[in-house]
Amino acid sequence: MAMRTRLDWNGPTVTARQHSGAVAGLRQAAEHILGASRQLVPLEEGTLERSGVASVDENDLTAAVSYDTVYAVRQHEELTWKHDAGRSAKYLERPMTSERDTVADLVAAEIRRSLS
């Protein structure tokens, strides 16, 4: 007894959905890191904290979190400076490390959601 099976391949559709899920996941992940870093960023007047932005390059599937003041890098790297309680140098690096698993979960969840 012969059996027949039919397979419809929707590769381009799947690829497009996967890409849009990855973009959405990266956007959520970058916003998550931005929020976590804002909890640590040195705070005097709030200028540095307000300068933080999250961005996503949809073509390269990369995300970035950045702070845009003339002193942002120095504040991040200078380990000897004193900060208010709960605020610190490495305000961006620390969340990037501590939130690594959460970031991966956010991206994976959005990709799965886009494929369902």
Rank of each mutant, 00 (worst) to 15 (best):
V107M: 00
M3F: 13
G21A: 10
L106G: 02
S51H: 09
D60A: 13
A63W: 01
S51M: 03
S66L: 15
T47H: 13
Q75L: 14
E44F: 13
L43H: 00
E78M: 05
V14Q: 10
E49H: 14
E44D: 14
V23C: 05
A22H: 09
V107H: 00
E78V: 07
S51N: 03
W9N: 13
A30D: 02
L34N: 04
G86C: 04
G46N: 14
A36W: 08
L61K: 05
P42D: 02
W9M: 09
D8T: 15
R100M: 01
L115P: 12
Y91N: 02
D105I: 06
H76M: 06
D8A: 09
A108T: 10
V14W: 11
A54N: 04
S37W: 05
A85R: 15
A85V: 12
S37E: 06
R113F: 00
M3Q: 12
E44W: 04
V73T: 02
R17K: 11
Y71A: 01
D68Q: 11
E99Q: 06
E77W: 02
G46T: 01
E31G: 08
Y91G: 02
D101M: 07
S51Y: 04
E110M: 00
E49Y: 03
V53M: 07
V56G: 06
W9E: 15
V70Q: 08
R100V: 05
L106K: 03
G52Y: 04
A36Q: 15
S66W: 12
I33F: 11
T15E: 15
N59A: 13
Q18N: 03
D101I: 01
D105C: 09
T47K: 12
A85K: 13
Q18L: 10
A54M: 01
L61G: 11
L92Y: 01
H76T: 07
L7C: 03
L106W: 10
Q18W: 02
V41C: 05
R87V: 00
E99D: 02
D105H: 01
T15S: 14
H19N: 05
H19P: 00
V103D: 00
S51F: 00
A104V: 00
R50I: 11
K82G: 03
T97F: 13
A54F: 03
G11Y: 15
L43Q: 06
E31S: 13
V103K: 07
E49Q: 12
R4E: 14
A72Q: 08
R94E: 04
A108Y: 08
Y67H: 02
T47Y: 14
I111G: 04
A63Y: 02
S51K: 05
R6P: 04
S51V: 10
L79E: 13
V65I: 10
M96Q: 07
T97D: 10
D105F: 04
T13C: 04
N10W: 12
N59T: 13
L106S: 11
R74K: 10
A85C: 02
G35Q: 07
L7E: 11
P12K: 00
A63P: 00
G35N: 05
Y67T: 02
R112D: 15
R4C: 12
A2L: 09
E58G: 11
E78Q: 07
K82M: 09
S114D: 08
M1Y: 14
T47C: 06
T62P: 07
D8I: 06
R100E: 08
A36I: 06
L92W: 04
R94G: 04
